[in-house]
């Protein structure tokens, strides 16, 4: 109940943030533009639309998660709005979980708008919608969940600028961990091998949430893979949230 109130208020806060609309407008524009670009090719039109569309949804959604996530806790402390919230019968972890879900609600809504745009464009160009597209969107959402928990973790102890840099690094490295592991295994030095496998196992592997290629080429994706990725995303995020709570619980709000 209290968590829901905080989540809904966070949602209100997010949707009144101008940065959200800038990103959303850009995303929808690019999805629309994909239809124009697709006319440049012959026979591959839907692939181009879906390829660009999903990429736009993914990148702009991640940007929303990062830019709203980094301020999630920091802003509350910086503006001292947290003082009166915590003077009410609310535990610190309830506050944090409320904030997290508030941002997730915002992201779901935006994801729905962007997906509707993509489906609309695909439909208007006369192609059949594949269920696989929605599976891809779902996994993109799981990636948002993970990115949001990373951003919130940094937001608990770091400034927005640093948090943005850290979270963005996580995002980039998260998509490269398999390559890092591969190069590490080819390396001569033992140190490089150990380091690359440490990075591989410690950092999230965000390629688990990427099935865009399968959608584009229409090949099937095993449901067990989707289940695995979902569990992976939930467990990894839960772990990050627990760490955030531990940090947040001990903090002095000076």
């Amino acid at each position: 109940m209290k968590i829901v109130a905080i989540a809904l208020n966070t949602f209100k806060e997010c949707i009144r943030d101008r940065i959200l609309y800038n990103l959303l407008i850009f995303a929808v524009l690019i999805i629309g533009l994909s239809a124009v670009l697709s006319t440049l090719t012959f026979g591959e039109q839907v692939r181009i639309i879906i390829n660009i569309g999903l990429a736009a949804i993914n990148i702009f959604g991640v940007m929303m998660a990062i830019f709203l996530g980094i301020g999630l806790v920091y802003k509350e402390i910086d503006r001292r709005t947290i003082y009166t919230i915590l003077s009410k019968p609310i535990k610190r972890y309830e506050f944090l979980i409320g904030k997290f879900f508030g941002l997730l609600i915002t992201l779901v809504l935006n994801l729905a708008v962007m997906t509707a745009g993509l489906v609309g464009v695909v439909y208007l160009t006369g192609w059949v919608i594949n269920v696989l597209l929605f599976k891809a969107v779902f996994l993109i959402f799981m990636e948002f969940v993970l990115i949001t928990s990373i951003a919130m973790l940094f937001s608990c102890f770091s400034t927005p600028t640093l948090s943005a840099i850290f979270t963005l690094s996580f995002y980039v490295i998260g998509h490269l961990t398999e390559d890092i592991k591969f190069f590490g295994s080819k390396a001569d030095s033992l140190f490089a091998k150990k380091l690359s496998s440490l990075i591989y196992y410690a950092l999230p592997n965000l390629e688990n949430f990427n099935i865009k290629g399968f959608v584009v080429y229409g090949s099937g994706v095993d449901n067990s893979f989707i289940l695995f990725s979902t569990l992976y995303g939930i467990l990894y995020s839960a772990m990050l949230i627990v760490i955030s709570i531990l940090i947040f619980q001990k903090r002095d709000f000076k």
Partner: peptide, 20 residues
Amino acid sequence: VSVKRRLGFLPENPYFYDYL
């Protein structure tokens, strides 16, 4: 935390969610 139900607090130079 439960005692806060019977407690009211006003911080110094308060600031609240200004979008509400």
